[in-house]
Design a protein around this nucleic acid. Structure first.
Length: 424
RNA sequence: GGACAGGUGGCCGAGUGGUUGAAGGCACCGGUCUCGAAAACCGGCAUACCGGUGAACCCGGUAUCGUGGGUUCAAAUCCCACCCUGUCCGCCA
């Protein structure tokens, strides 16, 4: 979200950003309206504050007269009228600011300069790793998973609904193995601090990372509480330092967390929904970083390399896609998707999305740092990426490591955690 | 869930209607002193917004004492609601 000062200063950049997202026609007029509302807002602020200054001075004079046992009643009456006009103007200001905020909340982040214009098709594969396996004879993961007793989709639907899955036996242990493997990798080799956070978040946190107000329909809400099931650990982890000013030494910060993620995926039914491809609840290890503005481009590369390391350890072939503006998430300024090849379904599966939000989330969440003693606070840049999402990773493992007899070879990196070299 | 107590600046802590953005202390920064350091002393030290030239510095104003509303010429101070913390009771993995 932008504040009004930035709206004024960076209007051309914001318009250009909207254009590169393909949203200028929809939001351009709204931004113009915001600028107009801002002018109105400042005019009202001046009017209000002028009167408040007068009232404060008058109140001081009342105090002085009373102390001196002089008559203060006429002045009090005068000041009361001043108060009435302040109330009126403030009400008007509130309406203006309300409309302005509503608009500002709808304006997405500006894509970085190296983000290509266009939509999904304009995404650019910037590098690949490993050799995608041929599709011949490879069964989709849901067939293998059910046959080996790792997955129980019907019973997931029975206890929760379609889009919820039950892992069992070695399948359940695989989930646990992935959690420990990924957390170990990121804490030991990549120096992240492991955090275990609530799986629900309040409205303030959800707004801080921009899930609200725009995407409220995609969240599960808790009945009778103003709480939401988190759609990603990004919400609770990024918000750890909401409305705080960090010491310079605390930035960059790096956190890793395992959480389940809950998504209603309203209106998404029908597309890539089979098996483990799209679930209402899934598990994920998430990487979150705070950075200085100067370092954040390099931090995005670093974060992405950490997510890639998981796929490399698992020896799963993947490609890195730089998303085009129109495909980049609302709060993101630049996103790399990591896609691993699933030969059974014949698709590249998105298992990680690594983004820099520049100061967009930080402004909204009020996360700042002080560069040095006596210096003004600056907004941090926030970044995050999955490292990785489990279900699609499991799908890729079951398909990539499938043997002709339907059993599955366990990647070396997981054997210590799983206690076996074969899923059979 | 019930009862009671409490939420003040980075931290501790004073302050129950009128120059209180807020005493005092600690921490931190600058200076004097010192060969250097410590101690002592002097000074500084919140954030946001509006305006003064767009920016830096600076100046003026407004707001902020958990949050939101209310009373009043005037609220950290009075009233209401909510949130959070602590203690005890109940319940519970």
């Amino acid at each position: 979200m932008y504040d009004t000062k930035r709206l004024r200063d960076e209007l051309p950049a914001i318009r250009d950003g909207l254009r590169r997202r393909g949203k200028l026609d929809v939001l351009g007029a709204l931004v113009d309206r915001a600028e107009e509302l801002d002018r109105q807002r400042r005019m009202l602020i001046q009017a209000v504050e002028e009167r408040k200054a007068a009232r404060n001075a008058a109140s001081q004079e009342v105090a002085r007269r009373k102390k001196a046992s002089e008559d203060a009643d006429p002045l009090i009456a005068e000041t009361r009228e001043l108060g009435d006009s302040i109330t009126r103007l403030q009400r008007e200001l509130g309406v203006t600011e309300g409309e302005l905020d509503e608009i500002l909340l709808q304006v997405p982040n500006i894509p970085l300069a190296d983000v290509p214009e266009g939509d999904e098709e304009q995404g650019v594969v910037i590098r690949s790793w490993g050799a995608p396996r041929d599709r011949d004879g490879v069964r989709p993961h849901w067939e293998i998973g059910e046959r080996l007793g790792l997955l129980d989709l019907p019973r997931g639907a029975k206890v929760a609904g379609s889009g919820f899955v039950v892992f069992r036996g070695a399948g359940a242990r695989l989930v646990r193995a992935l959690m420990t493997f990924m957390l170990d990798l990121h804490t030991r080799d990549h120096a992240y601090e492991e955090v275990w956070v609530p799986f629900v978040a309040n409205r303030a946190a959800m707004t801080g990372t921009c899930q609200l107000p725009k995407f409220e329909d995609d969240m599960y809400a808790v009945r009778d509480e103003d709480l939401f099931l988190i759609p990603t650990a990004e919400v609770t982890v990024t918000n750890l330092y909401r409305e705080e000013i960090l010491d310079a030494g605390a930035v960059p910060a790096a956190f890793v967390a395992y959480t389940p993620c809950f998504r209603r995926e309203a209106g998404a039914a029908g597309k890539d929904t089979r098996g483990l491809l799209r679930l209402h609840e899934f598990d994920k290890v998430e990487l979150v970083r705070y950075s200085t503005p100067e370092e954040s481009p390099a931090q995005l590369e670093l974060l992405t390399s950490h997510a890639e390391a998981v796929l490399q350890r698992l020896e799963l072939p993947y490609r890195v896609v730089l998303l085009a503006g129109g495909d980049t998430g609302f709060a993101s300024a630049k996103t790399y998707d990591l896609e691993t090849w699933a030969p059974g379904v014949g698709k590249w599966l998105e298992v990680s999305s690594c983004s820099t939000f520049t100061d967009f989330q930080a402004r909204r969440a009020g996360i700042r740092y002080r560069p040095g003693p006596g210096e003004k606070p600056r907004f941090v840049h926030t970044l995050n990426g999955s490292g990785l999402a489990f279900p699609r990773t499991i799908a890729a493992i079951l398909e990539h490591y499938q043997r002709p007899d339907g059993t599955v070879t366990v990647p070396d990196a997981l054997r210590p955690y799983l206690g076996t070299g074969t899923l059979a």
